[in-house]
Design a protein around this nucleic acid. Structure first.
Ligand SMILES: [Zn+2]
Ligand SMILES: [Zn+2]
Ligand SMILES: [Zn+2]
Ligand SMILES: [Zn+2]
Lengths: 141, 141
DNA sequence: CCTTGTTTTGATATAAAATATCACCATGGC
DNA sequence: GCCATGGTGATATTTTATATCAAAACAAGG
């Protein structure tokens, strides 16, 4: 999902694709991997952006609402946002040290999605699969 | 997963199944669904427990470390803990109002688990599948 | 263009949640 | 019992998130 697509999605949902929001989107796409709102804000600061902290928080919330990102909890107290490429995201998380490894393989069946949508009246737009385990380093320690 | 099994798991991992911890476990099992640490603490208070707030936080962290619960983020600022029955948990979340619906159907393939374990050196112990969508009420509004 | 109503922004203030500290208590091995 | 280790809980502190509000940006209509 690129900047243009996200811009369109914002418009679709009646939110203006303002300069500040697009700066956040740009930073989000450049900043690879998981990040907290403050991580992203500080990264933007370091590249000379003048977008405020509140706008970063609000834009991430907005992007979560329209299904571009999703907040997850990685044990640090702050929400970590992950990009939902093509609507989904998958990662392994170490239960001890919170190290995460992303992977592309998707085992989510489309028919289960439909079945759940009907059963619960939801319009389904994406998913996150988190697998828990213990990483090599923590198995040794 | 019942109280005894969790008690054994604590011991297995070298943590004492103290009275305070078991009270938290008991409350956790009674309190159905998702909850924040403070939700659980307040619930315990209301039932006359004298276990302190810190112990509730610490016990939940401990249980997360051994795979009994998992913190998730549901947009409220506080971590929501879900019980990993038999190692896994699945729910639908509304992207607008954060309403959640749990479901039992599991589409996670065992062979993918093995494949990932080998590839990344993880010892896999469970998973969470979060499906995002818009609930009936929010579709209407 | 201007005017006007609406949305967005960002500084600041506030509230909420998580973590650190530390003295005390409980437990288990010696 | 005595010591070493681990666990507890009150409190203080830090970190995150949210509320507030005046100013700025914008869209629409005249
Ligand atoms: Zn690890
Ligand atoms: Zn997927
Ligand atoms: Zn909803
Ligand atoms: Zn499952």
């Amino acid at each position: 999902m690129n900047k243009i697509q996200i811009e369109n999605k914002l418009s679709q949902y009646g939110h203006r694709p303002t300069a500040a929001r697009l700066e956040v989107v740009e930073a989000l796409l450049n900043f690879h991997g998981h990040m907290t709102a403050d991580d992203l804000y500080e990264h933007m600061q370091s590249t000379g952006s003048s977008v405020g902290r509140m706008t970063v928080f609000r834009t991430l919330d907005l992007l979560a609402e329209i299904g571009v990102v999703r907040p997850t909890y990685q044990g640090s107290g702050a929400a970590h946002f992950v990009l939902l490429e093509d609507g989904h995201h998958h990662h392994l998380v170490c239960m001890r040290c919170a190290q995460t490894v992303e992977f592309a393989e998707c085992s989510f069946a489309e028919d289960l999605s439909q079945q759940l949508a009907e059963k619960h009246g939801f319009k389904i737009e994406g998913h996150l699969l988190e697998i828990y385990g213990v990483c090599k380093k923590c198995q040794a320690g």
